[in-house]
Design a protein around this nucleic acid. Sequence first.
DNA 1: CGGAATCCGCAATGATACTG
DNA 2: CAGTATCATTGCGGATTCCG
Lengths: 129, 129
Amino acid sequence: MKNLVSRCPIEEVMQVLSGRWPTLLIYYLKVGTNRFSDLRRKNPTISHKMLALELRKLEDAGIVVRTEFDGYPLRVEYDLTPAGHKLVPLIDALGDWWESVETVTTGERGGLRVVEISATKKSASRLIL
Amino acid sequence: MKNLVSRCPIEEVMQVLSGRWPTLLIYYLKVGTNRFSDLRRKNPTISHKMLALELRKLEDAGIVVRTEFDGYPLRVEYDLTPAGHKLVPLIDALGDWWESVETVTTGERGGLRVVEISATKKSASRLIL
DNA sequence: CGGAATCCGCAATGATACTG
DNA sequence: CAGTATCATTGCGGATTCCG
């Protein structure tokens, strides 16, 4: 995402929380301290580089603290800040909202019109009209 | 953003709400009906094409309804669905969180270490150490 | 081990033109 | 007016390498 187009605070948060990783990282950090390599192990598909970039972004936003320990090999721990913890229930609420939504999606399959109806995102039944 | 890496509901919402436009569009739609061209006028920097794509994404997610009127010239109206309205306070809460966060950012300027301290994102004072 | 720098492909986005 | 299609461009994000 490039520069902001407004000073709307909503747009500013989204600047930080947008993308696949920020919310996942907060999800893993909410239960406690994680080292860099912990987070890599828990997110097997994130690249070394992206993890570093995303963590720095969250740190700059005041969501995550970075603690560096002397010694070799290097050791760095990450935690949510108090502000970061305050964010968790909000993000969870978004997830809960998602699960509660009813959707109807239509498509085509073999010349037949297929309508997929789900009471929630979890349980979808399928009709062919 | 490409395909999901998990079935975490949080990641699924973010799939829809990520990016600069979704939250801004919801922001404008929360006060009432908007035509395609209304939304263009209110978001001068979004391209015609992107607006169409983002609106379709929100529609597929069950957040927005599209209503087409016959006649010429064409006329289409967009509204939040009930599910979309339920999302508004959550997004607002994210914005409120952002404004309440304290941050300390450090940098360099002309060989001097500059520390920027803000009680909230809104009011930042600047120190030179 | 944690991180920075470089290179590079691909997906996202923009510009433009065309349609009902 | 609203939307699609096509093409050009950008910039994200992955792979790799080097450093403390």
